[in-house]
Amino acid sequence: MRKFSLLALSLVFLLSACAPNFQKQNEAVQTKEKAKGKTIIPNYNISDKYYRTILPFKPGEARGLVVNNINTRYDLNEFEMGLMRIAQKSFDTEKYFFQEGQKIEAKTIKQWLNRQYTDEQLKEKNIKPEDNIGLNPVDTSAQGSEPTSPIYLAHILEHDYLTKDDKGNVTLSGVTIGLALNSVYYYKLTPDGDTFEKKIDFAEMEKEGKKLAEEVVKRARNIKTLKDVPITIALFEQESKSSVTPGRFFAYSTVDQGSSKLNDWEKVNEKYYLFPSTDAQNDHRDDTIAFLNFKQDVEQYFPNFNGVIGKAFYVEDQLQELNITIPIQFYGKTEGIGFAQYVAGLVMQHFPKYLSVSVSVTSVDGPEALIVRKANADEPFVHIYQ
């Protein structure tokens, strides 16, 4: 018999996580360059997919910049969470604690994201030569002409990972740096003119991204607090502004403690697909058929409805997660409950047991139901919103 719950939505995450350890939170001493302060490390971790976060929470130096530099909300979320997945290849979630990037200052990141400027451009913009440290290539085009080179680097994101010693001292023990690269370059010929776009070839983007990574690591080593710690640096391809699926990390490299030399680049084979779509049909036909069968059965419940949309996440070409959205209009709460029961059964019927599936049912009034079937679970969890 399927389980129904009217508990708060946060229970979804508790149920999907590892067994909790409800011990009193630890209090540790965090040693800083100029002062010592108290910090809290929660004992309870909602999942081994995440790191325990150092408290009190400290916003990253680049907070706010990411919204302006990343094309879509989908890219923004994946850039942050994908970088955390990359970190797990080097920093164990049981041993390391997470903190948003504190070492590369916001002012520095802004300067690095600029273009390089010629001497004449420096005078025009009233920029000091010592501040001419942009990582994007110089543009020597005449005003009103197409730029001579695109902007490759859209954003830089730092994540810090800390460890605690036997005395409770917490110190920085590793850093990840994500470089968001443009797959499409947007530009204007005049400040108030139309926006044009230019597709950047992947091979070109990859080549430039790896060159940028070497320079970023070199500069990071000149920051006192990053002089010796291990660094993992990763390249992220962000999608166009019109995309409804996020971009992806496609490569990463590690830098040993005290070194400025990147080790060999490792390929990251991850990708998101929209269901239904031509790309999904061409690359993952069997999964697409399973989704379409599910969609067809939903439409039998509401014959005039065809709004079922899925977002599928693949790792090494294997489907890992499927998140489905069903926007629909209900005329009563009991109708919504009945529909949720029906959809929960379809999830169990159409999708393999190893796959994690979530279905969000919404109406014009807001969320109506959430159905979650974790990988290898015997029954789905269903939450009906009140």
Rank of each mutant, 00 (worst) to 15 (best):
T176S: 13
G193C: 08
D165L: 06
K34Y: 09
G209K: 08
L346F: 08
R221Y: 04
T232V: 15
M348H: 03
D317P: 00
D166Q: 12
L346V: 05
L9P: 01
T325M: 12
Q386L: 09
S90N: 06
K353S: 15
F57H: 15
R285Y: 06
K58L: 09
Q341V: 13
D160E: 07
P42H: 09
F339W: 03
E120Q: 15
Y50C: 08
A340F: 05
A340N: 05
V359K: 05
T362C: 11
E130N: 15
D165H: 06
Y51V: 05
N263A: 07
S360M: 12
T334Y: 04
T195F: 09
V315H: 10
Y272L: 02
L6P: 01
S277E: 03
A35I: 04
T108N: 06
Q296D: 10
F313C: 01
I151Q: 07
K49W: 09
S5Y: 10
T195V: 15
G37Q: 12
S358P: 02
T245S: 07
R85H: 08
V170G: 05
E94M: 09
K224I: 06
A369H: 08
Q25R: 14
Y331W: 05
N222F: 07
K38Q: 13
A280Y: 00
A344Q: 01
K199E: 14
T171P: 05
K125M: 15
L83E: 10
N43Y: 06
E321W: 02
S356F: 03
N269L: 11
E105A: 14
S47W: 07
G307R: 09
A290T: 08
L162H: 14
D75M: 06
T31Q: 13
S260F: 00
Y50R: 10
N71Q: 11
L7I: 06
K207Y: 11
K241G: 04
L113H: 00
Q296V: 10
F351T: 00
G37I: 05
K89L: 13
Y301R: 11
E335P: 01
R85F: 02
L15T: 07
I223A: 03
F249K: 01
D119H: 08
E158A: 08
Y51W: 05
N182E: 06
I371P: 02
A17C: 12
